[in-house]
């Protein structure tokens, strides 16, 4: 159909309801949150209207600094692990038959949609002393006694990689499906092995995609709030956990809001960077 510019006010009719919904229930709550981040805490209720910068000043403490540092470090580590596992995997997946691809995609979507609660519970069971993976090692004689592998940093990292891996694969999938097959054919004709062709031709061709994926997985991992609580100790808590904790248990909504605004700024800056990287790739 030929697309037409809207002529009369009535032509805008269909846009009214979605626009109202998105503005009232996304733009307004978001702005409310920004406003609340400048308010004062009220122990009796939610907050008192005010304009103070105290909530932001609290960022300068060493405690907050260490939580922020840990969150960023953890998210970077998760992003690197996920892309390192997912990139060769997704590449091989796109070379499979349609049927194999479909089965894998259905499984990955199912795991991706799983609640963080369920992922946390599953891994806490797998790492537990009574039902865990160490029982298997005892059974084949590699260990003398079953052990609990949690709480600990390794458990948090494993759980978060598990949560982010399907996401990583599904983000990489479209770029790898569209990869020009003649690139690879040329490399093969010139005599390079498939493994060499993958590292010397496919990887450089998708360098920007890889950077964009790393950033997206990083933002995704920043949002993890339950796994550090279920699988880690308090020193493994991330900024997201701290925000929930302040908002719900310490009933300090203004401070929670200030931290959330800060997290938005970090995420937005990174998403912006992704878009920039993506644009360069399209231009090239």
């Amino acid at each position: 159909m030929r697309r037409e510019a809207p002529n009369s006010l009535a032509d805008y009719g269909p846009l009214l309801y979605p626009a109202v919904m998105l503005v009232v229930f996304f733009v307004v709550p978001f702005s409310t949150m920004i406003a609340v981040s400048f308010f004062k805490r009220d122990p009796a209720g939610f907050y008192k209207t005010d304009f103070v910068l105290d909530n932001y000043a609290r960022f300068l403490t060493t405690f907050f600094g260490s939580v922020l540092g840990f969150s960023l470090m953890l998210a970077v580590l998760v992003a690197i692990c996920c892309v390192a596992i997912a990139f060769p995997f997704t590449y091989l997946l796109t070379k499979c038959s349609r049927k194999v691809q479909t089965v894998w995609l259905v499984c990955l979507l199912s795991v991706l949609s799983l609640s963080e609660v369920i992922i946390g519970f599953s891994w806490s069971t797998l790492f537990s002393r009574t039902a865990g993976v160490t029982n298997l090692l005892v059974a084949i004689g590699l260990m003398s006694e079953p052990q609990a592998l949690l709480p600990g940093f390794g458990a948090v990292l494993t759980g978060m990689v598990y949560q982010a891996l399907p996401y990583t694969i599904l983000v990489l999938y479209p770029a790898l499906v569209r990869l020009d097959p003649t690139l690879l054919e040329a490399a093969r004709t010139l005599g390079s092995s498939p493994v060499r062709a993958f590292f010397n031709v496919v990887t450089p061709a998708l360098r920007n995609t890889l950077v964009a994926t790393l950033i997206m997985v990083f933002v995704f991992a920043l949002g993890s709030y339950l796994l550090p609580q279920i699988l880690g100790r308090p020193q493994h808590w991330t900024l997201s956990v701290l925000i929930t904790d302040q908002a719900i248990y310490q009933s300090n909504m203004p401070f929670a809001a200030a931290m959330a605004v800060f997290l938005v700024l970090i995420s937005l800056a990174l998403v912006g960077l992704t878009l920039l990287v993506g644009r360069k790739e399209n231009a090239a």
């Binding site: 949150m33 933002v219 709030y225 938005v264 995420s267």
Partner: peptide, 12 residues
Amino acid sequence: LPPVITALGFLT
């Protein structure tokens, strides 16, 4: 955006 942000937005 990280879900905790949207969640806090709705809470406020």
